[in-house]
Design a protein around this nucleic acid. Structure first.
Lengths: 233, 233
DNA sequence: ACAAAAGTGTTGGAGATACACCCATGA
DNA sequence: TCATGGGTGTATCTCCAACACTTTTGT
């Protein structure tokens, strides 16, 4: 049994986007190949092979940018997926052949999850030609390859790390209200939280600082705006 | 810039071993190549290229067995290391050339951490010919490649996951005392714990069950033995 | 003045922490 | 009988959960 003389390594990005209407994932639509009936294009996660001389984190940033125009997104590696049969379906193999002129080889992928505020970032991906879409998290249909499992594991990782890793702010606009922060927690963790207790906890977080600024143009008491200031120890 | 036509993928195992004298890591000594002075063999983590048709978890188990004779060890993937310069030192490249007849190519590795009870497993690796050694965790010298960083990150992961993942039992003999369990926690988490509070907490864990058996041959009050029973929900 | 969301404190209970003495065994 | 680690309970405090009304703005 030979060692893997040549094996392909890719990165796949599960980019979560958040705004007041909920949590979404960034998907791209496979193009072409619509000639035969059982190869109707499906959606997939943005991902591609890594280049020589490029680190994994770097590759994730580049691939995401090339496919979706998103730049400077918070991206974190969460798991490598290396099942030898992870690209087993015929339509997946066919699609890969159509898009790359490379031999049909095993592909191991490194999964990244990413976080963006749709308020700050939405305009760009929708202006990008190749069908990039923000899909409601619980309305994601069957994706190509093993991308549904990758998505599921990414979301589990997000749930586990949301509280401990100071990452919620990546999903919010730079200036946000505590109600927005709480709504985000409730959606990601999938449970209701008590407003007063939540705010008590936030007040203990020294990296969440109140600004000298309030919401405007709302037809109710305007909320205090906050921003995230990374610790400077 | 070409996509990675052929890139090597390996697994590296950071196997932690525990007994009453402390926490150790399993290292292997590089052999041969001692001809030239600046290529004196160093130690490294057990790791090797993965085979075609073999999953990552599978590869980790196989490689660990082939190099150390350890079998059925708890192994968990924790991170992929893909810095293009991770095998940059000349002595590392030379060593790889000497042991594999493959072109000098980029190697990305997937890190696993492993846990074994030295009481249950120690005999075998020491009986294996090729210098396999259990090294005191804080006496590990410079390792080949980027293996020191891999080791550090593995240990951080162990610290983070020890409490939440029911893995402490992998480091203890099948039958253990609460004092042993506590000592393990204190070493891994690097803090002292209160005996009575610790035992109160353990009593809440339904997966730690007392046996009808006590320590023997000790010159003090013999301790109750416990074992770990995975939840059967 | 009304609608709509923002903002604010107190209380009771559960869980964490701190702490010191008696017990069973082998030598 | 002594040395050694095993085993146990209580008081206090901190942290978390539950809960309802007043405030500010736009219309």
């Amino acid at each position: 049994m030979p060692a893997t003389q040549s094996l392909h390594l890719s990165v796949d990005c599960v980019v979560f986007g958040y705004n007041d209407s909920g949590l979404k994932v960034l998907l791209i639509n496979q193009k072409g190949l619509s000639t035969s009936p059982e190869t109707t294009p499906r959606s997939q996660l943005p991902g591609d092979l890594i280049l020589m001389n490029e680190g994994l984190d770097q590759a994730a940033q580049r691939v995401l940018f090339e496919l979706t125009q998103l730049e400077g997104v918070y991206l974190k590696q969460f798991k490598a997926f290396g099942d030898p049969n992870r690209v087993k379906e015929l339509k997946d193999r066919a699609w890969l052949q159509s898009v790359r002129n490379l031999p049909d080889q095993r592909v191991v992928t490194v999964g990244y999850y990413g976080l963006v505020s749709l308020q700050d970032y939405e305009p760009r991906p929708s202006s990008f030609a190749g069908g990039v879409q923000w899909s409601e998290l619980n309305e994601v249909g069957p994706l190509a390859f093993d991308h549904n499992s990758i998505l599921d594991e990414a979301f589990e990782t997000l749930q586990e790390q949301l509280e401990s890793q100071h990452i919620s702010f990546e999903l919010l606009p730079k200036k946000f209200t505590l109600t927005q922060l709480q709504a985000l927690y409730e959606i990601v963790l999938d449970k209701k939280l008590d407003k007063r207790n939540f705010r008590k906890n936030v007040k203990k977080m020294s990296h969440v600082v109140p600004l000298d600024e309030k919401q405007t143009g709302v037809m109710h008491k305007p909320a205090q705006l906050f921003s995230y200031e990374p610790q400077k120890d």
